[in-house]
Amino acid sequence: MRQQPGPVRGQDGFAAVDALVAVTILSSSLALSLMAAQVGTRASRSAGETRDAELLLRERLEATAGQVGVWSGHDLGLDWRVEANIPDAGPARQAAPCVRTASAKAASGRAYRIATVDICRPEATG
């Protein structure tokens, strides 16, 4: 006897279940891929902001090298501030070690900070 094409007797609903499982797996894979792309985009944006903040703060520290004072401003979407002061002021016109701190705050709320020690002249002000 010749067998007719089509489902085997007793397996009438399995094609629909197979299709439903395949669609579920496909949609789950797509959702996970989109979430991974979103996380990657967020991490890339954060890394770029960190890079910009570090470059800006290092530049501001170099621009104020050897000076005592306070400078601030807004650049590259960051509010920045540089402070340089001599902790134990000795004679008024003598160069001394000073602590210079540069900090920035981004619109995202993240704060960045770099500090260094330098030789500053008390009479130089920014």
Results as ranks from 00 to 15, higher is better:
E49S: 07
L20F: 02
E123C: 01
Q11S: 12
C98A: 10
M1V: 13
G66L: 06
D52K: 02
A104Y: 01
G77S: 08
F14S: 06
E49N: 06
A16H: 07
G77Y: 05
E54P: 00
T41I: 13
R58F: 03
R2S: 13
M1D: 14
R60A: 01
S27D: 07
K105A: 10
G77W: 05
L26A: 11
L56W: 03
R45C: 04
C120P: 01
P97W: 03
V8K: 15
Q11I: 05
R81T: 13
A124Q: 12
M35Y: 14
V8N: 12
R121Y: 10
S27W: 04
S44L: 08
Q67T: 13
S28W: 01
P7T: 15
A37S: 13
R113L: 06
A92S: 09
G10M: 08
S33L: 11
V68Y: 11
P5V: 14
A89E: 13
E54I: 11
V82L: 02
D118Q: 14
S103T: 12
S44P: 01
S29W: 08
S46A: 15
G126P: 03
P5Q: 13
E54V: 13
R58V: 10
R93N: 12
P91C: 02
Q67W: 07
T50H: 11
S103W: 02
I119S: 10
D18C: 10
A31F: 08
D18P: 00
R58P: 05
A36I: 04
V70D: 02
A96V: 03
T50N: 07
